[in-house]
């Protein structure tokens, strides 16, 4: 669509050094990790994202068009300027700015996780899968901390879905929720292998693992948007490019509030859609 075309124009400006196109390392990597996890792919090492995607591709149910696209994005990411990694996510000031933007500028409530009932179902499904790990994983496979057994984990999930009369579809729109569950299950397996060398796990440990996984990978993405905004402000960035027009309107409408925050060193940030940025670049 038009926003894709506008991004091509922006990329051209970047390649000709007429625009500084930047991103932040950790926040960007976390976005990718979450996005791929939602599709079932487990990135365990952000220095080896492509290898992690290729390991996922060896499973025959994977949509190769999608993974080809991911690899392209990873390649594009490598061509961006990454803002100072050292300063990311360390200081308390960043956290107060984070809450300030979320509450005072974007006026968001405290709860941005999944709808409660869906989260509850996910937890129950993952917990039940974990209760049966010893029926599927032999000792050798359980000891292998590196390899992700996509096919085996899918079989474990499939069996639990069938128990609940949920159609175990993986592909397409219909399979979206199941792919997301597989992504979460891969994490549960990984964390369980590391924290419990011998199966079975006791139910309290399962609760602990599932809760940790849900907290890190099971929420929605709005919190990440705020992280990006914080990084932009800290690095005195002019524009944050997003296709979320609702976010753009809310932030730009109340960004003057930023001057009230003591840790806020720059208030010039404006959120723009790709086409809005192109218009500004042309007008320059």
């Amino acid at each position: 669509g038009p926003e894709q075309e506008a991004m091509q124009v922006i990329w051209g400006y970047h390649k000709k050094d007429r625009l500084r196109l930047v991103t932040s390392g950790e926040a960007m990597e976390m976005d990718m990790v979450i996005a791929f996890n939602t599709e079932g792919c487990c990135v365990t090492d952000t220095y080896m994202i492509t290898e992690n995607i290729e390991a996922f591709e060896t499973w025959d149910r994977v949509d190769r068009d999608l993974t080809a696209k991911w690899k392209q994005v990873v390649d594009l990411f490598d061509q961006l300027e990454v803002l100072d990694r050292e300063r990311e996510g360390t200081q308390g000031a960043e956290d107060t700015l984070f809450s300030f933007i979320r509450e005072e500028v974007l006026c968001e409530g405290g709860n941005d996780t999944l709808p409660q009932n869906r989260a509850k179902d996910d937890v129950e499904i993952l917990h039940n899968c974990a209760r049966h790990f010893q029926e599927w994983y032999g000792e050798d496979r359980w000891r292998d901390l590196r390899r992700i057994e996509y096919d085996l984990n899918w079989k474990i999930l499939e069996s639990e879905l069938l128990q609940r009369s949920i159609e175990p579809v993986f592909e397409g729109e219909e399979g979206a929720q199941n792919r997301c569950l597989l992504g979460l299950l891969n994490r549960v397996v990984g964390f369980s292998k590391k924290s419990c060398p011998m199966l079975p796990m006791n139910p309290r440990h399962i609760d602990f693992v599932v809760e940790a996984v849900m907290k890190k990978y099971g929420g929605d993405r709005r919190e990440h948007e705020v992280r990006h905004i914080v990084h932009c402000i800290e690095h005195d960035v002019d524009f944050l490019i997003t296709v979320d027009e609702d976010l753009t309107a809310r932030f730009n409408g109340k960004r003057h509030e930023l001057s009230k925050h003591p840790a806020c060193c720059s208030i010039k940030l404006t959120l723009v859609t790709p086409s809005q940025l192109v218009n500004r670049l042309i007008a320059q």
Binding site: R18, L19, A35, H224, E225, L240, V243, L277
Partner: peptide, 15 residues
């Protein structure tokens, strides 16, 4: 030179 920040979802419009 202006600085523009891009995140994953916007960057993926290029792929």
């Amino acid at each position: 030179r202006l600085t523009a920040y891009v995140g994953y979802h916007t960057l993926s419009l290029l792929a």
